[in-house]
Amino acid sequence: MINKEKVPTRLGFLASHGGSGARAIAAACRSGELAAVPVALASNNSRSSALAWARAEGGLAAAHLSSARFPDPAELDGAILAFLQENSVDVLVLSGYMKVLGPQVLEAYAGRVLNIHPSLLPNYGGPGMYGDRVHAAVIAAGERESGATVHLVTAGVDEGPVLAQSNVPVLLTDSVEQLRARVQATEGPLYVRALGRFLAGWTRPGAP
Rank of each mutant, 00 (worst) to 15 (best):
A22V: 13
V183Q: 01
G196R: 05
R10E: 01
Q165D: 06
A56F: 05
L195H: 11
L11E: 03
R197T: 14
R144F: 00
M129L: 14
L11N: 08
K99D: 02
L84R: 03
R47T: 15
A108M: 12
L84V: 08
G59M: 11
D174T: 10
G96I: 03
T149A: 10
V153N: 09
R10K: 12
S66I: 11
L114A: 02
R180Y: 09
G58H: 10
A42T: 04
G32C: 12
P73I: 12
L163V: 12
A148W: 05
E159A: 15
A141S: 15
T203Q: 15
A24L: 13
L14R: 05
S48M: 04
S31G: 09
D77N: 10
S49Q: 14
A42S: 14
V100C: 00
T9N: 02
A207T: 15
A82W: 09
A136D: 00
A24Y: 15
R30P: 00
G19W: 02
P122H: 04
V100S: 06
G156N: 11
T186V: 06
Q104A: 15
G131D: 04
S20H: 11
L60I: 09
L106Q: 01
H135D: 07
S49L: 10
A62R: 10
V7H: 03
L34F: 13
G206C: 11
V192I: 09
P189A: 12
L65H: 05
E57L: 09
E57I: 08
A61P: 04
A137C: 05
C29F: 07
L120N: 01
V176P: 03
V162I: 15
L41P: 02
R47C: 03
A194L: 11
E86L: 13
L14M: 07
A50T: 09
N3M: 05
A140G: 01
G142N: 01
G156F: 06
L190P: 07
R55C: 13
I80N: 01
G21S: 10
A22N: 07
A207K: 14
Q165F: 07
D174K: 03
T203L: 15
A194E: 10
R182I: 09
D72I: 08
E75F: 03
V105F: 01
E177F: 06
L14I: 04
A52G: 13
M1Q: 08
S31W: 05
S166R: 00
E143W: 07
E143T: 05
G126H: 04
A62V: 07
V138T: 02
G128C: 01
L81E: 12
P73C: 06
A28N: 11
N45G: 03
P122V: 04
A27R: 13
T9E: 02
W53T: 02
